[in-house]
């Protein structure tokens, strides 16, 4: 819970967190090492100095640290825990749904557990979706179209096999499809994070919501264009948010674009924990105001209402969270934890 200076409570749903194991013991090959090194590069490049972690902690921090960083020291009330499998890079995977389920079972009131599928698995992908629904009751997925698999270097949301999975998602009520569309970590020329495939899928599956993580950067204009056309496309602020510290002017211009094109109802906060921790991100975001010239040129404002929506209300709507009820659940769980 975040409290404003005047005492108002802001309910925070962190739309993008991970509990990964990238320790050397779990790395399958050089790619596994280089992948976490790249994440650590993001962490080092955009964090405030006092928030920097040692490399070993960053590689594997564990569920207890995560709980503390998000909910005890951090302001999150809830968090959407997203999987990233990367089984070609890590022996047990980077953070699979099954691994994430362990922390969610301990704190069910805190987490929304998301699954994933890989359409290149064919029939097995469909079976897996059934399993995710039955075992965990997932309402959402995180898809990573650039994932390697054997000789394949990625896939597209518009692939026929992906469409079969989306059809099943509609049937099973798995409505929220988070898609990683971010900075280029691209094999060869194929731009696996090109956002055009979102356009096709969002048009053909109007009952699903597509949350484009990292707001498609560095293809912001393509993403905005698609989001204007498709009412079921949302923007996730993971990574983009971190610019608020090192490049506030840049952050202002970017968020103003999003407010102008998507509006305040379709933007979701995400810390991308453990690349960044939510405490400083939320504090800086709450204190942030758009410079006058940008407000004037774009005709938008990052008001308190907009901030509340971005930090929690928009995600609550997508995931059917009744905030007042949830607050009671959180209180009951906290009392129980104190009693234990």
């Amino acid at each position: 819970m975040y409290r404003t200076k005047s005492g108002e409570e802001i309910f925070i749903i962190d739309g993008h967190v991970h509990n990964w194991d990238a320790s050397p013991e779990n790395q399958r090959n050089i790619h596994g090492k280089q992948f976490i090194d790249c994440f650590f590069g993001y962490h080092s490049a955009l964090s405030p100095k006092e928030e920097l972690w040692p490399k070993a902690k960053f590689e594997k921090y564990g569920a207890k640290t995560m709980y503390r960083d998000l909910f005890v020291d951090g302001p999150d009330d809830m968090a959407i825990i997203q999987p990233t499998y990367l089984l070609d890079f890590y022996k047990k995977g980077f953070n699979t749904t099954e691994q994430n389920a362990a922390i969610v079972e301990k704190h069910p009131e805190r987490f929304i557990l998301n699954g994933a599928f890989d359409p290149r698995d064919g029939e097995r992908a469909l079976d897996y979706l059934h399993e995710l629904k039955e075992r965990y009751g997932v309402q959402g997925l995180k898809l990573y179209t650039a994932e390697w698999k054997g000789s394949s270097r990625g896939w597209k949301l518009s692939d026929a096999d992906a469409y079969r999975c989306f059809e099943l998602c509609e049937k099973l009520g798995i409505k929220n499809i988070h898609v990683h569309k971010g900075p280029t970590i691209t094999p060869l020329d194929r731009d696996a994070f090109d956002v055009a495939d979102v356009d096709h899928a969002a048009t053909d599956f109007p009952n699903l919501n597509f949350i484009v993580e990292h707001v498609g950067l560095p293809r912001l204009e393509d993403f905005c264009w698609i989001a204007v056309q498709e009412a079921n496309v949302y923007g996730g602020l993971a990574v983009a948010m971190a610019f608020i510290h090192s490049r506030p002017r840049y952050f202002a211009e970017m968020i103003a674009e999003l407010l102008f094109w998507l509006g305040e109802d379709r933007i979701l906060f995400g810390s991308d924990y453990a690349i960044w921790t939510p405490k400083w991100l939320v504090e800086k975001f709450m204190a942030f105001e758009l410079p006058e010239d940008i407000k004037k040129e774009r005709g938008v404002d990052l008001s308190l209402t907009a901030k509340k929506k971005i930090l929690g209300l928009n995600a609550a709507k997508l995931y059917g969270i009744d905030i007042e009820k949830q607050k009671k659940k959180l209180k009951a769980a906290a009392n129980k934890m104190a009693a234990d």
Binding site: K55, P183, L220, E221, Y250, E257
Partner: peptide
Amino acid sequence: ALRTVRLNMEFNGAICRGLLAAREAM
């Protein structure tokens, strides 16, 4: 319209410089 092009390039520039510095440090 030109600004969105610049925002993408600035994003890349900031990320690349930051990642390179981090890689050097590592």
